[in-house]
Design a binder for these strands. Structure first.
Lengths: 140, 140
DNA sequence: CAGCATCCGCTATGATACTG
DNA sequence: CAGTATCATAGCGGATGCTG
């Protein structure tokens, strides 16, 4: 138990982290970066500030509603900053805060893992499904 | 703009990763580690193999249904391995695979960030909500 | 013990239309 | 342009009871 890697040692505490810290807060933080759009938006905004419609165009599939909600949640958590320029037509700029930027590294690690391993996962899933099919669908 | 950290540079590509890689696969991978129980179960199982009921007891709030489903998904992705011992009463052991273990580091980073910053997040949220309250509830 | 089947409610997300 | 309001829906997740 004393010669584990540091990463492993730290990971040991992950189960505990999930359980011993305020579980609700912990979950809500994970939910934030785990939801459907936050990760992409953080990645996009980390390259520089962007406007609402710009984000809308840069995020295929997102609706205005979800863009608004996700941005609001990110702002509420202090991860992005929203700046309104009272002009006509109105202009609103979004950017990642310094605090939000500290989230970049961990999020990047996960995103990279996902990108690096998506082929393996697809293969694993196919293998699993075929094995299940062999057992379940004996005929016909 | 030219003296960004490496992490930042790498992060620049995250937006692209999300958009240019197979978006469905990318999302499904993120959904896996982002769902309600996977992270906790991976953390728990990474400390060693465990049985079904053991996991059930160690994961407050989870239902048998969700434990089964989450474990199945994790198994399908090749992240955990399920071993059945045909005894009486039946015994089933779950453990993290080598592949699943590679997920430990990135997941750890995120978990640690969440643990380290949950106080900040709570404070940010409160500040945001109060500010919103000041604006929205002028009177009454 | 280790699951699976069923029912069911809630929340996340989407579509659409309207506003300052 | 940058949202808000409303409605509809799909899937997640919980409760419960049954089975090998």
């Amino acid at each position: 138990m004393s010669h584990q890697t540091e990463a492993h040692q730290a990971l040991l505490s992950m189960g505990r982290m999930c359980l011993e810290h305020d579980p609700d807060v912990f979950r809500s933080v994970l939910d934030r970066v785990g939801d459907k759009w936050s990760l992409i938006l953080i990645g996009l905004l980390d390259t520089g500030s962007m406007r609402f419609t710009e984000l809308l165009r840069s995020t295929p599939g997102i609706s205005r509603r979800m863009l608004t909600l996700t941005l609001r949640n990110l702002e509420r958590d202090g991860i992005v900053q929203r700046t309104i320029y009272p002009e006509m037509p109105p202009r609103v700029e979004y950017e990642v805060t310094a605090f939000g930027h500290t989230l970049a590294d961990p999020v990047l690690g996960l995103a990279r893992w996902a990108a690096d391993n998506q082929n393996t996962i697809v293969a694993n899933r196919r293998a699993f499904d075929e094995a299940a099919g062999d057992l379940g669908d004996d005929l016909d």
